[in-house]
């Protein structure tokens, strides 16, 4: 479902380009929950951005559902992000002047094939599913951290993606809300959606099928083998 080969990322610098990592390889089958761990600064978020088509690799190739996306033009990458990938960020950012239902419906609007009424209906249903049906017309600022993360999951699922990328999703949550969120991610994986989660929390990583460390520029399985 998700495959990378020889993936590398280098940032330009006036003196010498900064290489974050190089020659990474990874294969994740459909419906697998992968936890990406490792020390800070090793490039976990950078790798997540590459997997999320938010950035382009400096080297290597990336296939998503059999389509090589690493060479796609900007417009096509935007469509891939919209159609195939759902994001859950650490601080679950929302557009502050739109209500919760409008925020969750944003991927539908950028999908261009949905009319407004249908988008709102789906957003309302997704929010009902995560127990926020009573908060449809509330501003995001009025929500608690746990509610915001549940809403972020609802938004990530709007376009029925094949891949959900989560960057430290439990970083700002208490134990109970963390457990609820991780359970939800686990359910998504069980339903056939591939989940890749960056985390520093070993307990959170325990919900995954597979834990991979990114350290010293290499991806290693928890059992020590190269991924």
């Amino acid at each position: 479902m998700l495959r990378i080969e020889g993936l590398g990322k280098r940032y330009p610098h006036p003196e010498r380009p900064v290489e974050v990592f190089s020659d990474l390889a990874l294969d994740v089958p459909r419906g697998q929950f992968v936890s990406l761990m490792g020390p800070s600064g090793e490039g976990k978020s950078t790798l997540l951005h590459l997997l999320g088509c938010l950035d382009r690799p400096s080297a290597g190739r990336y296939w998503l559902e059999g389509i090589e996306v690493s060479g796609l033009p900007e417009e096509a990458l935007a469509a891939v992000r919209n159609r195939k990938i759902g994001f859950v960020f650490q601080s679950s950012h929302f557009v502050d002047y739109l209500d919760l239902r409008e925020n969750v419906a944003l991927p539908g609007f950028y999908g261009r094939d949905s009319d407004m009424r249908a988008c709102y209906a789906r957003a309302g249903q997704l929010l009902e599913d995560v127990g926020l049906g009573h908060r449809l017309h509330h501003r995001p600022a009025a929500l608690s951290g746990g509610e915001r993360q549940r809403a972020a999951v609802a938004r990530a699922l709007f376009n029925r993606p094949c891949l959900v990328l989560a960057d430290e999703p439990t970083g700002n949550l208490d134990t109970e809300n963390s457990r609820l969120l991780l359970t939800r991610l686990r359910e998504l994986a069980d339903s056939g959606i591939t989940v890749v989660m960056v985390t520093h929390d070993e307990q959170a990583a325990g919900f995954a099928d597979r834990v991979i460390d990114l350290a010293a520029g290499e991806l290693r399985e928890r059992n020590g083998a190269l991924a």
Partner: peptide
């Protein structure tokens, strides 16, 4: 800027 980044992540193009 954060909102712009979020919209781009959700599928907005530069033209959007």
């Amino acid at each position: 800027r954060a909102e712009i980044g979020l919209r781009r992540a959700l599928g907005a193009t530069r033209a959007d």
